[in-house]
């Protein structure tokens, strides 16, 4: 069950260009959180501009703390990235369905800030392998504190890891041994991941991103078109079986 609480920011560090990682003390939110779920957060100051909360995938939920990776993409995320240690945020969660429990090994495919929920997955399921792509080295999140059983990095310009995109890494990996895939990233990447998984005949679950108002399933604002009609990204997702998504259709 989600709760809405005020939590203190206990840790904050810059992990990549325009990207911070924060820990928020929120035991009630952390206790039942699972990888793929998200929270809606806003400042505690009584101002209404920006009006809506911002959804963020949960990157960690240990020791009563919710960890988030926030990449500045606009005004709302910029304000939240300006929070300092000791500051407070309103945090509503955990929300959404999360990834299913993998029965054995699983490949995590992260594009850009899509790394956020997949780090949580890699901690929860230590046999998971992580493939991570960014445009260039400056965008690559500092993952020096993480442990992976297998990790591959790609950048579009070759400034770190292999010079390709993460979908290419995935295709190579699937050719070696087919495993189910959990993916998060921009929509064109997810569509390509879904295609690669279909070809390799493996299950694929994608975590979608959409503008949200309520985050709990009440407003129906974050609709995504699926083979079963419109679904709410916040409540029916954000994790969907990739085969169900009507890619590129609104």
């Amino acid at each position: 069950m989600p709760v809405d609480v005020v939590g203190k920011v206990t840790e904050k560090r810059l992990v990549a260009r325009d990207t911070i990682r924060i820990a928020i003390d929120a035991p009630e939110v952390a206790k039942d959180a699972r990888p793929g779920q998200f929270v809606m957060i806003c400042n505690t100051v009584p101002t209404f501009d920006p009006f809506l909360r911002r959804p963020f995938a949960i990157t960690g939920a240990e020791w009563g703390r919710i960890e988030l990776i926030i990449r500045v993409v606009g005004w709302g995320s910029a304000l939240l990235a300006n929070l300092s240690e000791g500051g407070e945020v309103r945090i509503l969660g955990p929300l959404g369905n999360g990834f299913p429990d993998p029965k054995g090994g699983v490949i995590l495919a992260a594009g850009g800030i899509g790394i956020a929920p997949l780090l949580f997955a890699s901690r929860r399921w230590p046999s998971a392998e992580l493939l991570y792509g960014e445009p260039s080295l400056d965008w690559v999140c500092d993952l020096s504190r993480e442990k992976f059983c297998h990790f591959e990095l790609s950048t579009d310009d070759g400034s770190a890891g292999e010079k390709c995109n993460v979908v290419k890494l995935l295709r190579k990996r699937l050719a070696a041994s087919p495993l189910p895939v959990f993916a998060c990233g921009p929509e064109p990447m997810l569509e390509a991941v879904a295609k690669a998984c279909k070809r390799a005949k493996v299950d694929c679950f994608v975590s979608l991103e959409e503008h949200m108002a309520c985050g709990v399933g009440a407003c129906q604002g974050c609709a995504v078109l699926t083979k079963d009609g419109y679904k709410r990204v916040c409540k029916d997702g954000p994790v969907f079986d990739a085969r169900k998504i009507e890619w590129g259709k609104r």
Partner: peptide, 23 residues
């Protein structure tokens, strides 16, 4: 009613636009 095509939401200064379409 299935509702209107996405995107259905946009935040505006101190407010928001919605076009859910009575889904």
């Amino acid at each position: 009613r299935a509702g209107n095509p996405a995107p259905r939401l946009w935040e505006t200064p101190s407010g928001m636009l919605n076009s859910i379409g009575l889904a």
